[in-house]
Structure formats: structure tokens, C-alpha cells
């Protein structure tokens, strides 16, 4: 199924997108036990862009995000329906190895969660378990590149053996980003990565996200519309488990087609 058709299905007929879609969700439903959390979501995520998922809390945006690298598998009683493809491969097929999928689709969490190990080991862990670096020299290189890309190298290069938890909150979050990009994924999922940070650290991360877009496809869940407007090229608005509106960020914020989107971005609820 083509991207254009995808977009038609999600009620976005007019604008053809020039970029290739990296992740395509078709009729995604999610149940937590008896409760349905997502209703037939159809969404295509273009390559090398930042796609923001916004909506009031409990709207299913994080649930959708966690479908993309199957982090929902961990939750008891969670069932995912529909078809979700990454690079054209259905990731919910039975012969898909979750571990390999997650090496390609990395994730950054709401609260910075570095391992209680050294900064170096935090970064090196992923390449090590995926067998991506052999020998100390190669690993040093991977660690340095990742830290540089995450903009943390200058702050951390002299304290690589210190525990990751000794860094400040913003630094910890950048460490987590560095950890995610160390395994060289195609897609990075970010689940409200700045919600636990102060404004300065937040600005730093937002800048970083913009830089990372060149190499990675980024999907970010955020509760802040300003942030969505600042960092993303495309925005999808979720409400009560339904994908209400989706499109170019500018268009969503200036000219939303759905009334609920309008109400949300003008601050009438949420």
C-alpha cells in the first residue's frame, strides 16, 4: 500500500508527501485487558523527519509510540491489532525477533533512566549485546561518536568512568539519547523526553533533536504544543484513543481541520 493511500485513509487526501514513509501503521488497535486504548489508527511516519504525537494525557499517543518498537509486549494483557510496518516489514509477524527490532527502533523515555553504571558502560552496553563492536578500540570509538552526536562529549569526556547517575537531569537525558543512538538505529522514539527537565535543558534537547533528524527518523510524544511546533515537521493529534488529525506541523497549528484539534491547540481542553 502506498503512502498516498495511507494518507487518504487517515483523512489527509490533498497533500502528497515527497518523502518515503519509514513506519506505517494501518488500523492499529490496542487493548489493555478489557479496555481498548487505541481505535484503528492509521499513520505514516516519514523518513528523516521529526513527527510529533500530541494530545491530552491518556489519549493513546504513548501507546502508539510503544507499539513501534513493541515495548507494549512487556505489559501483561496488552494486545495489538492491525498492521505496523517498519521499512515495509510487519513487525508484529510471529517470526520477527523483538530484540533485533529494538536495535533498529531505539527509545528514549520520559524520565532519564541511565543504568547505575559508568557513563562509558551505559553507551557501550547496546553495541556490546548486539555484537556491533569488537575490541576496546572500536568500542571507544562508538562511545565517542555517540556522545558527540548527543552533544555530551565535551561535558563527559573526562568522567567516562563516573556513574551515569552522577550527571545532571538534562545531561542524563542526553546520555540516554547517546545510549539509544550508539546501536545505530533507524528510528528513535522519544516519550516526552523533556517533561522531567528544566527549560534550559529542554532547549538543549530540542536543538539536539533537530540535529539528529539528519541521520534518524524521530517520533516524539509531547504534551507541550510549543515543543511540537518547535521541533517537528509533522504532527499527529490523538484524542481518546483516536487519531483525530495529522499533517504538516504548520498546517496543523495554523489551520487544523478538525474541531477537536482546534479546541486543543487553542487551549480549550487538555
Amino acid at each position: 500500500m502506498s503512502v498516498a493511500e495511507q494518507l487518504e485513509n487517515s483523512g489527509q487526501p490533498e497533500k502528497a508527501v515527497e518523502r518515503k514513509s519509514k513506519v506505517i501503521g494501518k488500523d492499529i488497535t490496542v487493548h489493555y485487558g478489557e479496555k481498548q486504548a487505541l481505535f484503528d489508527v492509521n499513520l505514516a511516519i516519514p523518513e528523516h523527519q521529526v513527527t510529533a504525537l500530541i494530545g491530552p494525557s491518556g489519549c493513546g499517543k504513548s501507546t502508539f509510540l510503544r507499539c513501534i518498537n513493541r515495548m507494549n509486549d512487556v505489559i501483561d494483557g496488552c494486545r495489538v491489532g492491525g498492521e505496523l510496518t517498519v521499512d515495509g516489514v510487519d513487525i508484529y509477524r510471529s517470526n520477527i525477533d523483538v530484540v533485533e527490532l529494538r536495535a533498529r527502533v531505539g527509545m528514549v523515555f520520559q524520565k532519564p533512566n541511565p543504568f547505575p553504571k559508568s557513563i562509558y558502560d551505559n553507551i557501550a552496553y547496546g553495541p556490546r549485546i548486539h555484537g556491533q563492536a569488537s575490541g576496546r578500540g572500536e568500542m571507544d570509538e562508538v562511545v565517542e561518536t555517540s556522545l558527540r552526536r548527543a552533544g555530551l562529549w565535551d561535558e563527559a569526556k573526562d568522567r567516562l568512568e563516573e556513574p551515569g547517575t552522577s550527571l545532571s537531569g538534562g545531561q542524563q537525558q542526553r546520555l540516554c539519547i547517546a545510549r539509544a543512538i550508539a546501536v545505530n538505529p533507524d528510528v528513535i522514539l522519544m516519550d516526552e523526553p523533556c517533561s522531567a527537565l528544566d527549560p534550559i535543558a529542554t532547549a538543549r534537547i530540542e536543538e539536539l533533536i533537530d540535529e539528529l533528524r539528519e541521520r534518524f527518523t524521530i517520533v516524539i510524544v509531547t504534551h507541550s504544543m510549543q515543543q511540537a511546533a518547535r521541533v517537528s515537521q509533522r504532527t499527529a493529534f490523538f484524542h481518546l484513543g483516536v487519531l483525530v488529525d495529522e499533517g504538516e506541523t504548520d498546517q496543523i497549528f495554523t489551520n487544523p481541520k478538525d474541531e477537536r484539534t482546534q479546541d486543543y491547540i487553542t487551549g480549550r481542553f487538555g
Partner: peptide, 10 residues
């Protein structure tokens, strides 16, 4: 080659 060609670690 890199171990990454293996599905699983040695």
C-alpha cells in the same frame, strides 16, 4: 566480519 552478522552473540 563484525559480530553483528550473527543473529545471536557468540
Amino acid at each position: 566480519e563484525h559480530l553483528v552478522v550473527l543473529h545471536s552473540l557468540p
